[in-house]
Nucleic acid binder design. Sequence first.
DNA 1: TCAAATTACGGTCGACGTAAGGATC
DNA 2: GATCCTTACGTCGACCGTAATTTGA
Lengths: 85, 85
Amino acid sequence: MSLAQIETFVAVVETGNVTRAADRLRIAQPALSRQIRGLEDELGTPLFARTSRGMTLLPEGERFLEHARRILDEVAAARRITSKR
Amino acid sequence: MSLAQIETFVAVVETGNVTRAADRLRIAQPALSRQIRGLEDELGTPLFARTSRGMTLLPEGERFLEHARRILDEVAAARRITSKR
DNA sequence: TCAAATTACGGTCGACGTAAGGATC
DNA sequence: GATCCTTACGTCGACCGTAATTTGA
């Protein structure tokens, strides 16, 4: 699991769509698609249902999302340890 | 910043020593040393003081450590979303 | 047939390990 | 001189982007 995968996951959740998530993160769709796939493989369960309109969260994805957001928040805070005051 | 760097950082804090941290994580010392250096470079501040006995945390390192532990805890929890019940 | 995701494929860049180098006691 | 950490250097694997393929409305 990588921070890039977690950021990607959240972007897909928020855009509902791999294409728009890729635009937002400025990387190509296939790279993003592979990151999601790799994450699901590692967890051993799908996080999204693929529809013809895009990706929608499954219950496992909802649970993962809670942790993902906390991780990204903590990472952002960790980056700021130096700029306090 | 990567999860590997964060894990490495915590291992160095807990062992007080790059050599023992490398043993614990089963990677070579230079790789571990580079991860710490890269982390410090990215943050723009040293996290450890280098002594002849090993590495001791600086105040910035103490602050980083709080976030690092929460990140690793959340990652562990995120990995477990699938094994609930 | 359009819009979406995925798979194939080749290239590049990062990160590793071994080995050598410094520094401190 | 022993015990740390760091720098040098060559190699290999992971990940990216372009292009082709697949799937569904």
